[in-house]
Design a binder for these strands. Structure first.
Length: 505
RNA sequence: GAGCCGGUAGCUCAGUCGGUAGAGCAGCGGCCUUUUAAGCCGUUGGUCGCGGGUUCGAGUCCCGCCCGGCUCACCA
């Protein structure tokens, strides 16, 4: 056990019963010599420091000049060379070489660096910029300050931190040691920032709606339940913000979007985390055709401003996001795969069930009609959809919040946007007829009674909102984690979530 | 939940047929003023995930458990 004492600025190491003050001790094989405190409050070099090492380097590349700079960063390399020391300090943006000379720093400070500065420490430096013989931009250090001590040894410098369990449990170490991890999360931030820009451009208003909801609706999923003491009632963590966002359209917001977490009480695997990030957006006076164009445009915008190309490698495949993206109708795709058309699937349930059993859909014998169609589609169609594809015009049975198709009462105006078999987006012309919506909810209740645990609950307040008049509206949700998986070319959702869910140790 | 794979030094990894637990990095002591995975010489460091069992002897074989990964399920 270690603690700091403010009075005499010494480290205490508790060994068995005795308490022994030391200024030097070994921690995970690393010898620590500590003089004074482990961190300093009034850090001169810290407060003067440049914002970003990368910006500093870019500035110097544009207009090199003999200037003094002040920098803060984590020491990630030290190379002692007798009367000189080279090293690197790193921040999130990059790293820069530092060069310390005995004849510049003086005997005492030079020795202090050798004795007291370790890999991992947060160091402030001040000095002149120059280029070495090999051309590397380097700070010739005139002053330095230990800003914060690192007590643990850092992960191995060449291989980084590989153990995935450690990388997720101690993400900060992953970020210190692995450039790839840093770049993924910077990319994530960039994508979200670009999305906001894009929505701004179209006049969308960013809003926040409840995460704690009295009824978990708006999607087919099992919710987390929590309890509110004061109100003495159960609340659910939202599975989707959909109904609240549509209430805002009723209230007169013409276009809204929300970026936030949804929570689903289901399994954890390569593509599922119990909390995940979605952007949902709704635009009045649009229909799903407008959303198709909008989605195409957004993906082009995101790709051009991040990867700088519309063609990206994902695993073994090359994805081409050159618009227009492929469009295919739901039942046409099903017919192509099964030889059976819409009339078959919407006809006799038992015939559909028979087909499902032939296709080895699990538990086909007890699924509802809607679930049977859904599972057959997932089984035969989704796995083949690699290139960006809009699947259009879903059956009404499995889309309780979408508006009936203007040309076919069995269908709704809905699409899913599928890339590399991932369902990246789900969108539809919103159902804005309160009577129809009520009937659809009643259908859902029937499904629930027939055993579909994920069927949606009736939301009376939402119906009431529709009764006040929801303008014609189209809405869409995009899974941001899945999108990042594609852009980062990773097949695990944990690689794009900073702190993924793991069992406690 | 099932099957397979993995857990050995702070980190990255070896460990043969069951016979005294290894390397590199990091650390420590030296040498070295343009190095950059610096180099060279020397050196410290282990509850082999945890608990049982078999055996003269277990990192290694057997059983159970924990954690993680992959695959397939579950999500009645």
């Amino acid at each position: 056990m270690i603690r700091l004492s403010d009075e005499n600025l010494e480290i205490f190491v508790f060994t068995q019963e005795q308490v022994e003050p030391k200024k030097e001790y070994i921690f995970e094989g690393k010898l620590l010599r500590v003089e004074g405190k482990l961190s300093i409050v009034d850090a001169k070099l810290g407060s003067e420091a440049e914002n970003s090492i990368r910006e500093l380097k870019e500035r110097y590349d544009r207009e090199p000049q003999d200037e003094k700079v002040s920098l803060g960063g984590r020491v990630v390399a030290i190379r002692e060379m007798g009367r000189a020391i080279f090293g690197h300090i790193q921040d999130l943006s990059g790293k820069i070489q530092i060069y310390l000379r005995k004849d510049i720093l003086g005997e005492e400070r030079f020795k202090f660096f050798k004795d007291y500065i370790d890999l991992g420490d947060i160091l402030g430096v001040k000095g002149r910029l120059f280029r070495t013989q090999t051309g590397e931009l380097t700070v010739e250090v005139e002053e330095f300050e230990l800003l914060s001590k690192c007590l643990h040894p850092l992960p191995e410098k060449w291989h980084g931190l590989r153990d995935v369990e450690l990388r997720y449990r101690q993400r900060y170490l992953d970020l210190i040691a692995n450039e790839e991890a840093r770049s993924i999360f910077l990319l994530r931030s960039k994508v979200i920032s670009l999305m906001r820009q894009f929505f701004d451009r179209y006049g969308f208003v960013e809003v926040e709606t409840p995460i704690l909801q009295p009824i978990a609706s708006g999607a087919a999923a099992k919710p987390f339940i929590t309890y509110h003491n004061y109100l003495d009632m159960n609340l659910f963590l939202r599975i989707a913000p959909e109904l609240y966002l549509k209430k805002l359209i009723v209230g007169g917001f013409p276009r809204v979007y929300e970026i936030g977490k949804n929570f689903r009480n289901e399994g954890v695997d390569r593509t599922h985390n119990p909390e995940f990030t979605m952007v949902e957006f709704y635009a009045s006076y649009w229909d799903y055709n407008d959303l198709i164009e909008f989605t195409e445009e957004m993906f082009v915008f995101l790709l051009e401003n991040t990867l700088g190309t519309l063609k990206l490698r994902y695993g073994e495949i090359e994805l081409d996001f050159t618009p227009p993206f492929k469009r295919v109708r739901y039942f046409e795709l099903l017919e192509e795969k099964t030889g059976r058309g819409k009339e078959f699937f919407l006809g006799n349930v038992e015939e559909v069930r028979k087909l499902a059993m032939e296709l080895e859909v699990k538990h086909a014998e007890r699924l509802t009609h809607a679930k049977l169609i859904d599972k057959i589609f997932e089984k035969v169609a989704e796995g083949d959809l690699l290139q960006p594809t809009f699947v259009l015009d879903f059956p009404k049975l499995i889309s309780p919040l979408a508006k009936t198709h203007r040309q076919d009462p069995d269908l709704v105006e809905r699409f899913e946007f599928i890339v590399a078999t991932y369902e990246l987006a789900n969108a539809y012309t919103e159902l804005n007829d309160p009577f129809d919506q009520k009937e659809r909810f009643l259908e859902q209740l029937k499904e629930k009674e027939m055993g579909d645990e994920e069927a949606m609950d009736m939301d009376e307040d939402f119906i009431r909102a529709l009764e006040y008049g929801l303008p014609p509206t189209a809405g869409e949700g995009i899974g941001i984690d899945r999108l990042l998986m594609l852009l980062a070319n990773t097949d695990s959702i944990r690689e794009v979530i900073l702190f993924p869910h793991l069992r406690p140790q």
